[in-house]
Design a protein around this nucleic acid. Structure first.
Lengths: 226, 226
DNA sequence: TAAAAAAATACGAACGTTCATTTATTTCTT
DNA sequence: AAGAAATAAATGAACGTTCGTATTTTTTTA
């Protein structure tokens, strides 16, 4: 699988995402016409992610968001009931998509070596396709309210668990070395995150997403393969 | 070298750090008595790092800092001329210390394998000894003014260059495999950073700093050693 | 050495600004 | 025309910063 093939397989339309957000947040969205909601949620989220790739969510004012999204300050409050709710909304949806796509891809194989490759590639490709989402989810997690922070941490650990399970499977089947599984999973995760946290660096150096994914697989297999 | 040995060798006293900050910032510090400056800079920086391990620098108000440091809002402005300057001041000093200690350690050996081990251990141990500094420097870099952001990026690339040079040395001496040097250095860096970015995770799992450093060395050598 | 004077430092209320949010009004849509 | 949606102006709280005053420390005087 290459990045281009991945993008064809995994369709993540903005309309679909907005639709899900609408379902989750009917109560706090005051606008009734679904089309309007979906259209404007897309504009709001696009604008937020764009602004927050340059400055923090806190530093983004409602005026900034209004200017970038083309909606007035007052109109924005028809789509969320507080700035903090907007933060939570984007974070929750981001985690949901990431987790769903990743799990969907991994179950496609039952061979541990293949599973590990798929998991690494899917994560990197997904974080490339939704770079702003991933960056935002990572960097703004600490500004969430306490209970939402807990959910973010759980989600992070769940993703890691997915890798732990794959590696354990490989050790049982004696295709992987008996390494410290938790540490192996941790450093794989660290490598995956580097792709979207330092995207500026890799772009400057002309490292393609396929190059990077292959290299991370190479590293993982250097540690694990017998 | 273990973490405890490292701490004995590398003395990083708060007084020394504050003294250096005073030297760098004589102009904007209005208080004349050196002792006072050093004592209060320590309080201010400790308070800032403590608060910012829980919320962002932006979210920290001068009133918060006043309460935590025990100095009045007015008094604080005798030690820096704006909140932004305080951010820059801490970041600059943090980078300076990190770079100096790392370079000092690495020159101690001329063997690539040994050099790589020292570089990895020093970085992880240093980031453990100054965890709040490192976390703050990483997480708040994006809130710096444009020109300071450039310096932060340069510093990041310089650290990576240090690893690149070590690896290239090893390849020339034919003790390391001829891998993609830039990518190897990148993922090593990613693993190093994970230690202080996810310290909560490793502490919960009772992974010691020595365990982690040894493991990162193990991974690096799995990729590189012939 | 002790009191008085001067200097240095710290304080905290007050200022102007900016922000998130609300409200009153206007503009679309059907 | 009636209901829905968007706007623009208004509101009050919170922020960084300043500044006149109070307190502490140092120096001078006797």
């Amino acid at each position: 699988m290459t990045y281009n093939e991945f993008k064809k397989i995994v369709k993540i339309s903005k309309e679909e995402i907005s639709g899900q957000i609408l379902e989750r947040n009917r109560d706090s969205i005051k606008v009734k016409k679904e089309e309007k909601v979906i259209e404007n949620l897309i504009r709001i989220i696009d604008a937020t992610l764009k602004i927050c790739s340059k400055k923090s969510f806190q530093a983004m004012s409602i005026r900034d968001l209004s200017a970038e999204s083309g909606l007035s300050g007052g109109a924005l409050y028809s789509y969320f009931s507080s700035k903090e709710e907007l933060l939570v909304l984007i974070q929750t949806q981001g985690r949901e998509i990431a987790n769903r796509v990743l799990v969907d891809q991994v179950v496609k194989s039952s061979d541990p070596v293949e599973k590990l490759r798929i998991a690494i590639k899917s994560h990197i490709y997904l974080s490339e396709a939704m770079r702003n989402w991933f960056y935002f989810t990572y960097i703004e997690a600490r500004n969430l309210p306490k209970n939402e922070q807990k959910l973010a941490i759980e989600s992070e650990l769940q993703t890691e668990k997915l890798f732990i399970d794959i590696i354990n499977g490989g050790i049982e089947e004696k295709v992987f070395r008996d390494e410290n599984v938790v540490l192996v999973a941790s450093v794989i995760k660290a490598m995956l995150q580097d792709w979207y946290l330092k995207s500026w660096k890799y772009r400057n150096r002309k490292v393609s997403v396929d190059d990077y994914a292959d290299f991370v697989i190479h590293v993982a297999e250097s540690i694990l393969l017998i």
